[in-house]
């Protein structure tokens, strides 16, 4: 484990904590896309199929359990919690899951490192994670006014992606035979999706004004 990977995992973890804190303490999920959260729950469920079959490390297993539990509890909060669910912007969050899930599934069936159920599911989760943020970005674009916590949540997710790219570069140069085109390309696509958001985030931070996206 290198420093970029650890920092990437920690920012990823922080993004989830920020979101759970917002939902749990303010009892509001305003500005958060349920579609994106459901896609993330699906991403973790399909990626971590190996959780009970392949032991990598205690760290790995615990982090997987945290990501599974947190993503499903966020979905539960937004759908079931009697106060939180009232703040959900249902009419604005109209992105269709299937438009993202189907192409990712098809792509994973054709492009994968090994044609087995677990491997295809793993590849599917990589493709889906790359685009799962889209409903969230569309929602941000529509509501334009972003509260601090939502802004920090998306920022931390983007930071996590950027750090993972540094992790791959580091591993490529330090570990023999570490070549993973599928992971790299889908990871790069995912990070690029944040570029536009980052531009506005840094501008608002630099000018010390509230983050607001253009119409």
């Amino acid at each position: 484990m290198n420093i970029f990977r650890l920092a990437g995992d920690m920012t990823h973890l922080m993004s989830v904590i920020v979101l759970l804190l917002k939902i749990h303490t303010i009892k509001s999920c305003a500005g958060i896309s349920l579609k994106t959260q459901e896609l993330y729950a699906l991403v973790f469920a399909t990626r971590y199929l190996d959780i009970f079959t392949d032991f990598i490390s205690l760290y790995n297993t615990i982090m997987k359990l945290i990501f599974l539990a947190s993503s499903f509890s966020i979905v539960w909060y937004m759908r079931q919690h009697k106060i939180v669910r009232r703040s959900y912007d249902k009419d604005q969050d109209t992105f269709r899951h299937l438009f993202l899930i189907l192409p990712c599934l098809l792509l994973a069936l054709f492009i994968n490192e090994k044609f087995t159920f677990k491997e295809v599911m793993w590849t599917f989760s990589l493709f889906l994670e790359a685009v799962a943020i889209l409903p969230q970005l569309v929602l941000l674009q529509r509501t334009r006014n972003i509260d601090n916590l939502t802004g920090q949540y998306v920022f931390l997710l983007g930071a996590y992606r950027a750090l993972y790219i540094l992790n791959w570069i580091y591993r490529y140069f330090t570990e023999p035979h570490y070549v993973h085109w599928i992971t790299w390309i889908s990871g790069l696509v995912q990070t690029l999706l944040y570029a536009d958001f980052f531009y506005y985030y840094f501008n608002s931070w630099k000018n010390n004004v509230k983050l607001q996206l253009p119409a």
């Binding site: 190996d50 990598i56 490390s57 790995n60 793993w122 992790n167 791959w168 023999p176 035979h177």
Partner: peptide
Amino acid sequence: TGQPSAHDEL
């Protein structure tokens, strides 16, 4: 064991 793999990532 085995080759380094992106499967050990989260």
